[in-house]
Amino acid sequence: TTVHIGNVTYHFDNPEEAVKWAKEMAEKLGLRIEIHGDTIRVE
Rank of each mutant, 00 (worst) to 15 (best):
residue 36 H to F: 14
residue 1 T to A: 12
residue 11 H to G: 04
residue 23 K to E: 07
residue 30 G to L: 05
residue 4 H to V: 15
residue 23 K to L: 14
residue 42 V to C: 04
residue 3 V to D: 00
residue 36 H to T: 11
residue 21 W to C: 03
residue 2 T to K: 13
residue 13 D to I: 10
residue 30 G to M: 06
residue 9 T to W: 08
residue 20 K to C: 08
residue 26 A to W: 03
residue 20 K to V: 08
residue 37 G to I: 03
residue 29 L to V: 04
residue 3 V to K: 00
residue 8 V to F: 14
residue 19 V to K: 08
residue 33 I to V: 14
residue 28 K to I: 13
residue 9 T to L: 10
residue 3 V to N: 00
residue 18 A to W: 02
residue 28 K to A: 13
residue 13 D to H: 09
residue 38 D to N: 15
residue 3 V to E: 00
residue 10 Y to F: 12
residue 20 K to L: 11
residue 15 P to N: 12
residue 3 V to P: 01
residue 28 K to W: 11
residue 11 H to D: 04
residue 32 R to N: 14
residue 25 M to F: 06
residue 35 I to F: 11
residue 26 A to S: 06
residue 26 A to V: 03
residue 33 I to Y: 12
residue 5 I to Q: 02
residue 29 L to Q: 05
residue 8 V to L: 13
residue 13 D to C: 12
residue 24 E to R: 11
residue 15 P to W: 15
residue 22 A to L: 03
residue 20 K to S: 10
residue 21 W to R: 01
residue 31 L to P: 01
residue 39 T to N: 07
residue 14 N to M: 06
residue 28 K to G: 06
residue 29 L to E: 07
residue 33 I to L: 13
residue 11 H to I: 09
residue 22 A to W: 02
residue 38 D to V: 05
residue 17 E to L: 11
residue 25 M to S: 03
residue 15 P to F: 15
residue 30 G to H: 09
residue 41 R to C: 10
residue 30 G to I: 03
residue 27 E to L: 11
residue 16 E to V: 11
residue 13 D to K: 11
residue 20 K to Q: 12
residue 35 I to E: 04
residue 3 V to C: 04
residue 30 G to P: 02
residue 13 D to M: 10
residue 6 G to A: 08
residue 27 E to Q: 09
residue 12 F to N: 00
residue 30 G to V: 03
residue 21 W to M: 03
residue 33 I to E: 02
residue 11 H to M: 09
residue 13 D to A: 12
residue 7 N to G: 14
residue 6 G to D: 08
residue 15 P to A: 14
residue 36 H to P: 01
residue 24 E to Q: 12
residue 37 G to Y: 04
residue 21 W to P: 00
residue 17 E to T: 10
residue 2 T to E: 06
residue 14 N to A: 06
residue 32 R to G: 13
residue 40 I to V: 05
residue 8 V to Y: 14
residue 40 I to P: 01
residue 10 Y to M: 06
residue 6 G to C: 06
residue 25 M to N: 03
residue 37 G to N: 05
residue 27 E to D: 13
residue 5 I to P: 00
residue 7 N to Y: 11
residue 26 A to K: 02
residue 40 I to D: 01
residue 17 E to F: 08
residue 27 E to T: 07
residue 14 N to P: 01
residue 27 E to H: 08
residue 27 E to M: 08
residue 42 V to M: 12
residue 38 D to E: 07
residue 18 A to F: 03
residue 36 H to Q: 13
residue 9 T to S: 12
residue 41 R to M: 12
residue 28 K to Q: 11
residue 38 D to S: 14
residue 27 E to A: 09
residue 5 I to D: 01
residue 16 E to Q: 11
residue 39 T to F: 07
residue 40 I to W: 01
residue 15 P to M: 15
residue 5 I to F: 08
residue 19 V to L: 15
residue 14 N to Y: 06
residue 9 T to P: 05
residue 36 H to Y: 14
residue 3 V to T: 01
residue 21 W to Y: 07
residue 22 A to N: 00
residue 5 I to A: 03
residue 10 Y to C: 05
residue 34 E to H: 15
residue 32 R to D: 12
residue 7 N to C: 15
residue 6 G to W: 10
residue 12 F to E: 00
residue 41 R to Y: 15
residue 32 R to F: 10
residue 23 K to V: 11
residue 33 I to C: 07
residue 9 T to D: 06
residue 39 T to C: 13
residue 38 D to A: 11
residue 40 I to R: 01
residue 8 V to W: 14
residue 12 F to T: 00
residue 28 K to M: 13
residue 16 E to W: 11
residue 7 N to M: 11
residue 2 T to L: 10
residue 1 T to G: 05
residue 1 T to S: 07
residue 32 R to Y: 09
residue 33 I to A: 05
residue 1 T to N: 04
residue 25 M to I: 13
residue 38 D to K: 06
residue 21 W to H: 02
residue 41 R to F: 15
residue 22 A to R: 00
residue 14 N to T: 10
residue 11 H to V: 09
residue 3 V to G: 01
residue 22 A to G: 03
residue 39 T to G: 05
residue 2 T to F: 11
residue 25 M to T: 05
residue 3 V to H: 00
residue 25 M to D: 00
residue 9 T to I: 14
residue 37 G to D: 05
residue 26 A to L: 03
residue 31 L to W: 15
residue 32 R to P: 09
residue 5 I to V: 09
residue 31 L to R: 05
residue 5 I to W: 06
residue 42 V to K: 01
residue 38 D to T: 13
residue 35 I to W: 09
residue 36 H to L: 13
residue 11 H to Q: 08
residue 36 H to N: 12
residue 33 I to M: 12
residue 23 K to Q: 13
residue 35 I to G: 03
residue 21 W to S: 01
residue 36 H to C: 08
residue 30 G to R: 04
residue 15 P to K: 15
residue 31 L to M: 15
residue 17 E to V: 10
residue 22 A to Y: 01
residue 28 K to L: 14
residue 21 W to F: 14
